[in-house]
Design a protein around this nucleic acid. Sequence first.
RNA 1: CGGGGUGUAGCGCAGCUUGGUUAGCGCGCCACGUUCGGGACGUGGAGGCCGGGAGUUCGAAUCUCCCCACCCCGACCA
Length: 550
Amino acid sequence: MLRLSTLFLRTLREDPSDAEVASHRLLVRAGYIRRAAPGGFTWLPLGWIVFRNVERIVREEMDREGFQEVHFPALLPREPFEISGRWTDYGDNLFRLKDRKGADMLLAPTHEEMFTLLVKDLYSSYKDLPLVIYQIQNKFRDEARPRAGLLRGREFTMKDSYSFDLDDEGLQASYDKHRVAYQRTFDRLGMPYVIVSAMSGAMGGSASEEFLAPLAVGEDTYVRCTTCDYAANTEAVQVAPPQVLPVADAPAAVVHETPDTPTIQTLVDLFNERADLRRPDRDWVAADTLKNLVVKLKHPDGTTTPLAIGVPGDRDVDMKRLEAQVSPAEIEAFTEADFAANPALVKGYIGPGVLGDEKASGIRYVVDPRIVEGTRWITGADQPGRHVADFTYGRDFVADVVIEAAEVHGGDPCPRCGSPLEIARGIEIGHIFQLGRKYAEALGLTVLDQNGKTRTVTMGSYGIGVSRAMAAIAEMNCDDKGLIWPRNISPADVHIDATGNPTDPQLPAAEALATECEAAGLRVMLDDRIGVSPGIKFNDAELIGVPTIV
RNA sequence: CGGGGUGUAGCGCAGCUUGGUUAGCGCGCCACGUUCGGGACGUGGAGGCCGGGAGUUCGAAUCUCCCCACCCCGACCA
């Protein structure tokens, strides 16, 4: 029984000034957590009870699938991360330190390398597979900007599991088991979630899905179909390409003088105003134009190459989507000096006529999937002050490759059923990912198959942000008075408030009721504080958020 | 890393522009008394290196410079 007369708890009457989002504000105010370090929190008794409830449910659902729990150190040597390349790839986000001998160490941001090496250490036969092992452990990431309390800290608790299989079918089965286990876990935690595609299927076989808590304060943007069950992170949205049109139907491309048309809008206006350019059936719109943007890709080895992206004029290039497609390369701006070095590019009037590996510029040209054979575009004529109309894909120009990099708009058609998509925000609370053989190959994890042949193991990695999930639940289950926990993770089932004069009969009655509730198997929180006014007790009860208050 | 804001008692804040007795207020905390169903009241207390350092000055919470921390926006985020 939790007795408020002795519980290590101090609720705050006012909101802490440094907390912005509801979960942070209320968890601090109701005495669940205290800030202890930049991006780090101390768990107080109430907070720790709830945290362990969340952790317990996660663990039970892992165990139910037969996954086995292990536990690694968080303090690790450099070598495994050197081999996988992540000592460099992780950059500033990695906490690095040296031991007394000067050897490089790190605080683990995640444990793919260690799990892979552990299995390599102990297993060597196909008979040992499949295997899934997991841990629940604190992770460390030196975030540039920790924020929102537990939602984004620099030390946080994550359940991470890893599957090891001989072949793709096995990996798929391990992945599916996790997907089901995650659904059950989040259901039991009493939280709404959406499962979104996290990586374009066109990128290769590796499937990846995120579990997002739909929250406006979340940092991920995703789309959801208003009719079917399609949902995807904006980075992974795949545009449904329009129908291919017969190239022969397209009128010949004509170059027009188009002075003073620095923007898409001015260009469209000009085409609508000039009698010789007007369209008979309807007005020209921005989507009739083809906008070409040039950037530089900075590759991990330090070299840069230019890249031209063509998108319909009614949308911008979404840098996050683009970056997701070209990863691990990074995007840099195309400078005046770069224009000078590429004379074929006429700034403001870049058109596909000179773009492409085989063309005058020699610059790789990627286009949005909406640009298909037979589509006709108003676009730059690669001459100052001139645009070309009816420039037709498949006849007048082609791209080197198709890329998903254009902005996604609310109302865009669902790639699966064509209904409008809606855009929403969420926070990632789980991620399931078919890693494939990347780490197994890098670290040499192989087994012998039935024929005595060496086979590289294929892996999956699966994470649940335990502390973050708790914060997300708090975020979704509160009102202006305080928290309202789902019963499964609440610090108690019932909160009994004993009010009145110390000599009144309420106190012994409350004690008796509390004892009775406990005997009936309920977890009880009893406010047995003497000399505390009823208003304070009621407000504290509503702040603390046990679902039933007596 | 860029822009903005804030650091004064456990919490929330005033004071700073225009330097000047002992640095204030509310809540919380301690003691006694009165209260006792929606954050009660009285009386008396405890609690501060005014984020840190260096300067200017007879004198600095207040002015100047440097540093640190926190919050917000952006960049970044396996």
